[in-house]
Design a protein around this nucleic acid. Structure first.
Lengths: 223, 223
DNA sequence: CGGATGATGACGCCACGATGACAGCCGACG
DNA sequence: CGTCGGCTGTCATCGTGGCGTCATCATCCG
């Protein structure tokens, strides 16, 4: 999962990015409204953390522009305590959730998980697929009750597939959701990670759809 | 564990810091409300001892400001005997416990242990993790019933890990909770102490999570 | 049968972490 | 007041895991 963090205060930004990394996400950063708008418009994110008080372009404006351009990724707004009018404005502008500063990192992560989960149409914090269970709260995948020992990128690939199980996911989709901003797309890294995952997973879970991409499904399960 | 001591009377402050050091804690000091507020807001403490009668800013005010800013560390208020109204005000302001002067150092330490324990969600004064048992009352760690001969810093590292067993603890977390205020963070001391601890502990208890930190867990324990 | 697409084993780089050695500091003790 | 020994922080070195690349092999389809 790839997150855009829009926050002009460097300390908080660093804390956010670190916490996201610890939770298994990849994060891009923006320090001002212009950059934020550009990234959110051009790149692909699974969610956005958006501070409202930004240099160069206000957060609300950025959000409105994204929505007007048809961008639908979940947006979680961060702002100062007690500014309920900002909350109203944010929700009017198309925010999906709202968190007042100061907040606990754990709460932010919980809300973020909920947003991403809902965007994928999942109700529970645990996403299952055949023998696999992804526990989004602790960032682990269990296969038949056993924790899988996955590296960071392996986990991200698998988590993305599990969030979109049954769908065919193209290589470029995976690259966009797994790597931060600047990454050389001309390589076969995705194939390599799929291969590494297959070795660690029960056989037959990752299906190849020739010419299109991959699909995760329980063997013998829903097509 | 790192404690903030807010006390303007020099003799008592020195006694407190000394007693804390003997119990295995590291302490920062503040002599007035302004400094206290600044430290408690910017640094990371596992608990605060807060005298109420302070120069420059009243203790209650300091506490209220911390709470309003989202700081949740346990605070133990110290004040003169029989001023029950201060006790009420302190608890309203978000204090976790209250101790009237004069007090016995042993009682203060006991209450402090209880606060820190509860903040970590532990019920008992003894915290176990596999073959290890941390007795917070006497500041010792037993491995299979044998007392481990640990130096001050080794003990602090291990105690912090035991209080947060199962969680991944980053290097910066450890530094913040083990060293007093001013410490050069650009060094590999943490790695060194982890290595020294590993030599004294049963094998496999401290797990390295690459890029994130360390995790303490009983081998073969909770997945 | 041949071309294209994907799979996979092997390799090597790089950064992070582990660890042994050492030297400064400080307190204990004579 | 001097010496000794135990803690600690620093450094240099070594080991290793993660990851991207490549070459080769398998497979599918026209």
């Amino acid at each position: 999962m790839r997150i855009l963090v829009v926050e002009d205060e460097p300390t908080l930004q660093a804390q956010l990015v670190e916490a996201l990394a610890a939770a298994g996400y990849v994060a891009d950063r923006a320090e001002n409204g212009i950059d934020a708008h550009f990234l959110g418009d051009g790149e692909t994110y699974d969610a956005v953390l958006l501070d409202l008080g930004l240099p160069r372009m206000d957060g609300i404006t950025v959000l409105k522009k994204w929505r007007a351009a048809g961008r639908t990724m979940p947006v979680l707004i961060l702002t100062a305590r007690d500014s309920w009018h900002e909350k109203v404005a944010g929700i009017d502008a198309g925010a999906d959730d709202y968190l007042a500063k100061p907040f606990h990192m754990a709460e932010l992560l919980a809300r973020l998980r909920a947003l991403i989960r809902r965007a994928g149409g999942h109700a529970s914090a645990e996403i299952a697929c055949g023998p696999l269970v992804l526990d989004t709260r602790i960032g682990r995948v269990l296969a038949d009750g056993q924790t899988l020992a996955l590296t960071g990128h392996e986990f991200r690939v698998l988590a993305y597939l599990m969030h979109h199980q049954g769908e065919v996911i193209s290589r470029s989709d995976l690259v966009e959701h797994i790597y931060a901003q600047d990454f050389d797309r001309d390589s076969n890294t995705v194939e390599v990670f799929i291969a590494r995952l297959r070795k660690k997973l029960p056989a037959g879970m990752i299906e190849t759809v020739r010419g299109l991409g991959y699909r995760l499904a329980a063997p013998g399960g829903p097509t």
